[in-house]
Amino acid sequence: MRFKDVFSIIGPAMIGPSSSHTAGAARIGLVARQLLGGITAERARITFYGSFAETYRGHGTDLAIVGGLLGYATDDPRIPNALEEAEAAGMDVIFAEAVNPVYHPNTAKLQLEGGDRSVVVIGSSIGGGNVEIVSVDEFDLKFGGSYPTLIIDHRDRTGLIADVTEQLRREAANIVSMDVDRKGRNGEAMTVIELDAPLPEACLRALAGIDGVAGVRTVDLT
């Protein structure tokens, strides 16, 4: 992977003991919270894979990921008490363990529900506090959260991506990366676009108004 700066190597300011098992886990939780709309989930089922599954209790991965779901930054002193804080906030948390060789060893699946919203996120902690989201709502997409990111739910149709990028061109928004997945031809699809800078609300509303777009979400851990 490409590192943006020296802090990508040594890791962020954090509650320890591990940039991979705690800081990265908190960032996965933060991404999932933003994908749920920035609200605190009422129900969270968290499944750990690989080394996460083997060591999450000892390394505080469970505390860190729940802290992220509560909106805590990687260095928030409340992380050690995240489970108590979640209970006080009305979040019902269930932990599970699984084996899946497809994913990075430090991987978690988060199934969240809150109000009338739900989201399923699979993310991996890849070192130095950096993360890679590999799936959102069963779409296979990759992004890291290190850039302002658009997640666009839409119908698969000819010209839709061109309409989206034209709107971004009008806003003079520079695309860092783009990933697209679909359930089938003319069926449900999702596009993830990482940008150099956040978009104004007016542009987000314009994107949401494009024919075939069902919703626009944003993730920004910068």
Rank of each mutant, 00 (worst) to 15 (best):
T74W: 02
Y103I: 12
Q111C: 09
I94M: 13
L110Y: 03
G68Q: 03
G68S: 06
V99H: 14
N106P: 04
A64Q: 03
E84T: 11
M91V: 09
L83Y: 01
L112R: 05
P105K: 02
V102M: 10
I65A: 02
E97N: 13
P105M: 13
Q111L: 10
A88S: 14
G68T: 12
G71H: 11
A82M: 00
L63H: 02
E113S: 12
Y72G: 01
P77C: 08
K109D: 09
F95Q: 05
A98Q: 09
A98H: 07
P105R: 04
D75G: 11
A86P: 03
M91P: 06
E97Q: 13
A98C: 11
H104P: 05
V66C: 02
E113H: 11
E84R: 10
E87V: 14
E97I: 13
A73V: 09
V102L: 10
A64N: 02
G71A: 09
D75S: 15
A108H: 03
P80S: 11
V66E: 00
G90F: 07
A89T: 08
P101K: 10
A98I: 06
A96H: 10
E97L: 13
Q111A: 13
P105D: 07
Y72C: 05
A98V: 06
R78Y: 04
E85I: 08
G68N: 05
R78T: 05
I79N: 00
H104G: 08
Y72N: 03
K109V: 08
E84K: 14
T74S: 06
E87P: 07
L69Y: 03
E85N: 12
L70S: 02
N100W: 08
N100A: 06
F95M: 04
P101R: 11
P105F: 12
P80F: 10
L112A: 05
N106V: 07
G90S: 12
F95V: 05
A64D: 03
L69A: 04
Q111V: 15
A108C: 10
A96R: 11
L70K: 01
L110V: 12
P80T: 04
N81P: 08
A89C: 11
L112G: 03
A96F: 09
A96E: 15
N106Y: 09
P77E: 11
N81D: 13
V102A: 09
L110H: 04
N100M: 07
D76Y: 04
A98K: 08
L70W: 01
K109P: 03
L110M: 09
V66L: 00
I65Y: 00
Q111D: 14
Y103D: 01
T74A: 07
A98Y: 08
T74F: 03
L112E: 06
L83K: 00
E85T: 05
E97M: 15
N100C: 13
P77D: 12
L63G: 00
G68V: 06
A64H: 02
G90R: 09
R78V: 04
V102Y: 12
G90T: 13
G67F: 01
G67N: 02
I79L: 07
A96L: 13
Y72R: 06
A96G: 11
N106M: 14
